[in-house]
Design a protein around this nucleic acid. Structure first.
Lengths: 340, 340
DNA sequence: GCTTGGCACTCGAACCTGACGAGTGCCAGG
DNA sequence: CCTGGCACTCGTCAGGTTCGAGTGCCAAGC
């Protein structure tokens, strides 16, 4: 690393000031506001080097400097210290989340909380179906040859599908199917279900085999092969607050946020609940989000990530604050889900 | 009404031109583009009268006129003719909605469709719980003293609550509760359920009464007294397109749209599926939506409105087009729900 | 060799100005 | 009651000027 201590200090000062004021920061103001112990002229020299190396840039010749994506990256990687949440904040998270009555409510509260804490756009993915375990399967006869298949997971998620049966079934037969299904699948992860599903038809009485086959097919197709991953969004209005930070308009950002696929791509690629992931500006693969930064993390019980959550805002965001808020919320939601 | 034929014609022309161009329209352009059969000077006189009566206004002295809310109101009430949808549009609605696999999917497709057809923000309310009928109730034992109560309505909506029981119950007892619940409630509207719920404890064996009481309490409280009305939103990005139409910014609009309560207020007050409701600008009671117009209608099977749907956009919107799109979609969704 | 103060230079923001033209209101004549 | 004509208003736009923040560079100092 060719950058010595003071230059890093200068970069940190630039990032901090710029995040605070939204204005390009000049050498003089910088030397004054931060106890750098050197004169503006010296700062200018450092800035020239930083610019040459691509960490900062000038919007126009006679203006101060602003950090580049590369600058923010360095800041996040080496300069920012985790800002611990204030205890009122911690308490707010607890009391706000503890009131949730079901999974939907947990997700809704979480996403609002995140949006409010960070004053940015928050995204929370529902606990992923494929990574959850089946708690219970229920069959509800709708007509003689239509069943509603209800799957309840250990995270509290409830999914239902209508299944068209190849033949009419009586009530006792439904009971039989019900028993076999639960015996075979309850407690299993959905992701390890396919093998199990194959064996199910053999376990039921001969005439019910085709019915069990249809049920298995629906299970496989809609719950495992293309499980419906859902996300919830909040705080879009916060984009307005920082509208001037987006070149052009917030329009492409709003557009990207409307696409479920995009959102999933954004927070779906999480690994463990302990590692925060920060994508800054151009690092985002999604066209339209190139002017934003995204902070995501997995959440779930223990080390296994059930799903992701995160926050999206202008590249000029308060990274330390956002990162600790995201981490704290994820941790707490994980505990909450493990508890029930 | 002190306004004669030609003045109305002039007003219509102004509205139509302004909606098309987004620019104040002057007397000359107006006389040219529309076959009014009179000279610009005459149009000017008419415009002066229209302005005096509050139907149009001038942004500044040397500019053309734009319609006021009152002007749009007159236009909607007396001047616009329903613009029938093109047959490709009709077909698009059909094919797009027919692919839906469950209620969630119906709502999601509907809201997207509306947003795309109108190029505005679309809002769709889920079929209201209290106005739906119970198709089936299911009880899933979680632990010995916790049950999951699942309610399936005739519109395909599935709601679930965890119920803490005052005592542990065995499997046969759950079966009994299940039978009694379904016997008493299946087929009833949720809104007429309270009376029925009261009688349920008497129908079960003595020792199960307290359990049935808890179940009844949960049913009443969470499903009937404060039923969770849900809405889905799409097309927020379309606000960007007409950002310049909003004085100040779209920020307050976005903010209002984040509030479920506001959205419900917006589309919840619908009566019959046949009557469109148009609220223009200042007619909106919601602060923040004073610069928008809202077109809503009820939808449902037959004459009974199950819930509402609608569209929100700048006051300068294509009212005839929007109105017919909203009406057509509502009609089709109603049919779809009745069919299943 | 790094730091510092001085100084000339650049360039965007803000302000002013005048020309232009769209659009109006009014009036007299048909 | 409609019409053409005409004076008037006022926002927009282009061009020009000033102002000042901030820079880069250089020579002197520690």
């Amino acid at each position: 690393m060719s950058i010595d201590e003071r230059k890093l200090e200068v970069l940190r000062a630039i990032v901090e000031d710029y995040v605070l004021t939204h204005e390009p920061v000049g050498s003089k103001a910088l030397a004054e506001r931060h106890a750098l112990g050197v004169s503006p002229a010296t700062v200018r020299n450092d800035m020239a080097v930083l610019e040459e190396e691509g960490y900062i840039a000038q919007p126009h010749t006679s203006a101060g400097r602003i950090p580049t994506d590369k600058g923010y990256r360095l800041f996040v990687d080496r300069l920012s210290q985790v800002k611990p949440l204030s205890s009122p904040e911690r308490r707010a998270i607890q009391t706000f989340l503890d009131g949730a009555i079901d999974l939907d409510d947990v997700v809704r509260r979480t996403v609002r909380l995140l949006a409010q804490l960070t004053q940015q756009v928050a995204v929370v993915q529902y606990p992923s179906l494929s990574r959850s375990a089946v708690r219970h399967l229920e069959l509800v006869p709708l007509t003689v040859n239509r069943l509603l298949l209800v799957v309840i997971t250990d995270t509290g998620r409830v999914e239902q599908r209508v299944v068209e049966l190849p033949m009419p079934v009586a009530e006792e037969q439904v009971a039989e199917l019900h028993t076999i299904l639960n015996a075979g699948l309850a407690g299993r992860r959905l992701i390890e279900a396919p093998a199990q599903v194959e064996t199910l038809p053999d376990a039921v009485s001969r005439e019910l085999r085709p019915v069990m086959v249809s049920l298995g097919a629906v299970l496989l197709e809609t719950l495992i092969e293309r499980p419906e991953e859902r996300v919830m969004l909040a705080g879009t209005a916060n984009l307005g607050r920082s509208a001037m930070d987006f070149p052009g308009s917030i329009y492409p950002v709003l557009e990207a946020l409307e696409e479920q696929v995009v959102l999933l791509k954004l927070i779906g690629e999480v690994e463990s609940p302990s590692t925060l992931r920060v994508r800054i500006g151009e690092e985002n693969t999604v066209e339209g989000l190139r002017s934003t930064s995204v902070v995501t993390v997995g959440y779930g019980a223990g080390e296994r990530a059930l799903a992701g959550l995160g926050v999206l805002g202008p590249t000029r965001m308060d990274y330390p604050g956002t990162m600790s808020a995201v981490r704290a919320v994820a941790r707490y939601v994980g505990e909450l889900l493990a508890r029930q």
